[in-house]
Computed example of a mutant assay.
Amino acid sequence: MTRPHLLAAALIAVPMLSAPVFAQGGEGADQVVATVDGQDITLGQMIVMKQSIQDPAMADLPDPALWDMMLDQLIRQTAVAASAEETAAVRAQLELQRRNTLASAAVTQIADGEPTDEELQAAYDRFFADQGSVTEYNAAHILVETEEEANALKAEVDGGAEFGAVAEANSTGPSGPNQGDLGWFTADQMVPPFAEAVAAMEPGAVSDPVQTEFGWHVIKLNETRLREAPPLEEVRAELTQMVLREKVEAEIARLVEGAQIEKTEGVDPALLSQTDLLEAN
């Protein structure tokens, strides 16, 4: 039987506790629901524990049954924890968990709430509106190793040979089997010599050989079109995430900059491998 099954069996075997009775003073997160040798178990701890449940079968239990099961587990955990020896490893792990929990809570608080329309518009202007229209090109090419080959194939096309057939028979690039078709692209997606040649062409034209780091190209420009910036509403979700991320990053930078930080000099990085140090009390 696996450990999770053993744990579940142990929990099921324990008689159910009575339904929870809250003491006078309300049901806030700090409400004590049990004590073990003076250690409090609170309602907040129970709520967080329920949030962490990943087993659908447990999550679907009625609240009274789930309450009894979780409280029993926390009682066992608290009793066992009290017997543990607090080594350097335990202290380090507890402090790391504490910092991580607090830092996560701080980030959540910073990112809480939706950006304003003004913030979204400003982000949109930075990333989309200022770009204006972008020209896209639809082209095909024949790629060969030498200028002589490129000139010869260009002469075939000029003489009436069908460009796609010549590309399919001769091009060494991955687009060759597809008659050299490159689909739609923008200039910044291509290496500069190729992009410059395409930008200077008219639809339907075939270029003279163009050299790039990949070899020699004969290019046919099929057509062009203008791609407009998307409407703000179309990219609202992406902009929202971007604005929130920027807020979090800016606040983290502010907090780190304002913190008094002192790094201990002279500590040997090789000590990272000295795991025996964690066994000390």
Rank of each mutant, 00 (worst) to 15 (best):
A88F: 15
A89H: 09
V90Y: 10
R91P: 11
L94M: 07
L94E: 12
L94A: 10
E95T: 14
E95V: 11
L96G: 09
Q97V: 13
Q97T: 10
Q97N: 08
R98T: 14
R98N: 15
R98E: 13
R99M: 06
N100H: 13
T101N: 13
T101R: 15
T101V: 08
A103V: 07
A105M: 14
A105G: 13
A106C: 07
A106Y: 15
T108D: 07
I110N: 02
I110A: 03
A111V: 04
D112R: 10
D112A: 15
D112C: 02
E114H: 10
P115V: 13
P115E: 08
D117H: 06
E118I: 04
E119L: 04
L120W: 04
Q121P: 00
Y124W: 12
D125V: 00
F127W: 11
F128T: 10
A129K: 09
Q131H: 13
Q131R: 12
S133V: 07
V134E: 12
V134I: 14
V134L: 14
T135R: 10
T135E: 06
T135K: 11
E136C: 02
Y137C: 01
A139N: 09
A139S: 14
V144L: 06
V144N: 08
E145A: 11
T146S: 11
T146P: 04
E147Y: 05
E148S: 09
E148F: 04
A150V: 00
A150C: 01
N151G: 10
N151A: 05
N151M: 04
N151V: 03
A152G: 04
A152Y: 01
L153S: 06
L153P: 08
L153D: 04
K154Q: 11
A155C: 02
E156A: 08
V157F: 05
D158Q: 08
D158V: 00
D158H: 02
G160I: 00
E162G: 10
F163D: 09
